[in-house]
Design a protein around this nucleic acid. Structure first.
Lengths: 167, 167
DNA sequence: ATAAACTTTCAATAATTATTGAAAGTTTAA
DNA sequence: TTAAACTTTCAATAATTATTGAAAGTTTAT
């Protein structure tokens, strides 16, 4: 496999994986492109490489910047804006996990907490609702914490053990 | 908050959370409904409760059964089929995590592995591609393993400590 | 074998989400 | 101040995904 082929394969795979971490295809592909680029890229560069429109590029870059994953880089003597992404995967994951926790998991924890706190009127169905939403509430907290744990760990000790197991 | 209100709130919230764990709204809502129900429900019951069509109900129940989350229950003397869902959240999570790992994470690990194995031609961009896809490969393995870890743990020791921290 | 009771399938349609492109906005250089 | 270079916005459109409903399929009781 040659460089170009490998690069395209990587970008398109990472793009379609976007759904897994809750971002759209273009956004994931822009991030992937920046991730393997050795130098900052301009909007033009990104549009050309990914064959997407100016508007699409602008909007998705903006969102990536909102997330704190991509930063503007000003290059002396250049009028254009250039962009780079966080290159440390641990840090990248930490940012994404935090963002998703804040946007998606926290609101659910709140609802589960509310629902599991309704007054127990003694009926079986109410008891079941309370019991099961409590269990989900616990699980969600648990998952959220795991997410953060995964992400704040300093060393990838785990990776090493897995690779050992797989070989 | 009364039972009906709490129930509806739970079902709709859980439904909209579906995207987080990669399933569609109707599927998540059916699962939620079964999850808090004290007895198996028929297709009719589900359609009425969630106001969705017969076809939609049938297709999503089928998918939930494919995932192994929902099972058919035959009730003696009844012609209809009845459905129940796994009630143990730990087990539920384990099933979902396994399924997502198989369907989504494994293929990505494969691509990352392929891409990071391209011949190093000595250019900077090739080195960067190799380095960064290797890093992602490790991360993905790591995340996958975490997912499984989260899910196979017997006790929710973590939950307890979080609750303690939050209070 | 027949018909009633029930489930599945799938083409048509609706709803949602992503993308475009051109006009409006902003910044910079001279 | 002007105009060129660049970015952002957003209504229109395209692409994708979910949902319906009715016809076809299946099972069961008689």
């Amino acid at each position: 496999m040659k460089y170009e082929e490998a690069k395209d394969k990587f970008i398109s795979t990472w793009g379609s994986l976007g759904s897994l971490w809750g971002i759209n295809k273009a956004m994931a592909q822009i991030q992937a492109l920046l991730f393997i680029s050795t130098k900052p890229l301009s909007m033009e560069d990104i549009m050309d490489e990914l064959k997407i429109s100016r508007g699409n590029t602008s909007m998705n870059l903006r969102q990536l910047m909102d997330w704190g994953i991509v930063t503007k880089e000003l290059i002396p003597g250049e009028r254009k804006e250039f962009f780079t992404t966080e290159k440390d995967v641990q840090e990248l994951t930490r940012i994404i996990a935090k963002e998703r926790s804040r946007r998606e998991i926290q609101p659910v924890i709140k609802v589960l907490n509310d629902v599991s706190s309704i007054k127990d009127d003694g009926t079986e169905k109410t008891k079941e609702l309370i019991k099961q939403t409590k269990a989900l509430h616990d699980l969600t907290l648990n998952a959220d914490s795991m997410l953060n744990k995964l992400v704040t760990q300093k060393q990838n000790w785990l990776t090493k053990s897995i690779i050992k197991l797989l070989k």
